[in-house]
């Protein structure tokens, strides 16, 4: 078995999702090669070479790969990937954008968001917002896979000593171009890697009251998330959405504030180790999956929580 892992990065740092994906690659077993495609991304390639379990790093450093445009990167991954038995990427917005294109170019199926490796050709993945777990077997020669990060503990970022080879191939499809990016800037941890998350829902009523969650988050070193209802209502930005079609998270502690617990939200957080729900409606479905429930008005409970922490 030979596995190609497509690295997640921003040209300067290797993102944590790569470490979860390498963990899934280890579960399949075999030689692990990491592809770093970007521009001026030598630091990322060096970081990838230190990741535990990686035997080789391929660095494709060219302006065509700077913004991870799917048309360009997928051509490169398909070209390099045809020598491998498995091609893996994290189920991030980037992985989801690129990998189906890779699969189609190779004329194979993609297996999305695996949560378990049963054997080299058989995997488990959630369907129907996680209400059903399907075991899928592939007869394709190359398995193209995205990995749900929360299902795998990250491998160590240090300790490996892989060789770095540069890739000369430049794939520029010339079909699309980057215009701009507006990324949220925050001192708090990223949602998908935070140990503690505090999230607000429709019950927060407005964006102003999310400040209460931020104050608590700062005391706990937590990330702040939101339900789709809160994002749709315009209280907070889309990158904070947790759920079936937002981010999938599994922190040690998830505090749901003013979130009723729709199926679609639960799909994004029910694998958290400890779940706390604070809601004034004692019949809210969120209480059915919470370890600790507090029936209370959040506008009284949140200031109290902040004070007592």
């Amino acid at each position: 078995m030979s596995i190609l892992v497509v690295a997640e990065h921003d040209n300067s740092t290797l993102k944590g999702a790569t470490l979860n994906t390498v963990a899934a690659a280890k579960a399949i077993g075999g030689d692990i090669t990491v592809l770093v495609a970007g521009a001026n991304c030598a630091d990322v390639a060096e970081a990838a070479a230190k990741v535990d379990g990686v035997s080789k790093v391929l660095a494709a450093d060219n302006a065509a790969y700077e913004h991870q445009l799917a048309e360009n990167i997928s051509l490169l991954v398909a070209e390099i990937g045809k020598e491998f038995s498995h091609i893996l990427a994290g189920a991030t917005s980037n992985g989801k954008n690129i990998m189906p294109r890779v699969a189609a170019l190779l004329d194979v199926a993609q297996i999305s968001e695996i949560i378990s490796v049963e054997s080299a050709d058989t995997f488990k993945r959630p369907i129907y917002a996680g209400n059903v777990i399907a075991t899928i077997q592939s007869s394709d020669a190359i398995k193209v896979i995205t990995v749900r990060g929360t299902a795998y503990d990250p491998v160590a970022a240090e300790g490996g000593s892989a060789s770095v080879e540069s890739v000369a191939s430049v794939q520029d499809a010339g079909l699309s171009s980057f215009i701009k990016e507006e990324l949220a800037v925050s001192d708090r941890p990223e949602l998908t890697s935070a140990k503690v998350i505090i999230a607000g829902g429709r019950g927060m009523q407005n964006s102003e009251s999310f400040k209460m969650l931020e104050s608590v988050a700062d005391k706990l070193g937590a990330a702040v998330g939101a339900s789709r209802a809160a994002v749709d209502a315009g209280f907070v930005s889309n990158d904070m959405q947790v759920g079936q079609t937002g981010k999938i998270v599994a922190p040690d502690l998830y505090i749901a504030v003013g979130i009723s617990g729709a199926i679609q939200h639960l799909a994004g957080m029910k694998d958290s180790k400890v779940i706390v729900a604070i809601n004034k409606d004692e019949d809210a479905p969120i209480f059915q999956i919470s370890d600790y429930g507090l029936v209370a008005d959040l506008f009284e409970a949140m200031p109290e929580l902040e004070q007592q922490l």
Partner: peptide, 19 residues
């Protein structure tokens, strides 16, 4: 090229306690 070998319910979470 993919076959579904089986489907099963996810591990269920039990409701905990109210504080």
């Amino acid at each position: 090229t993919l076959i579904t070998v089986k489907v099963e319910p996810p591990a269920e979470r039990q409701a905990g306690v109210k504080v």
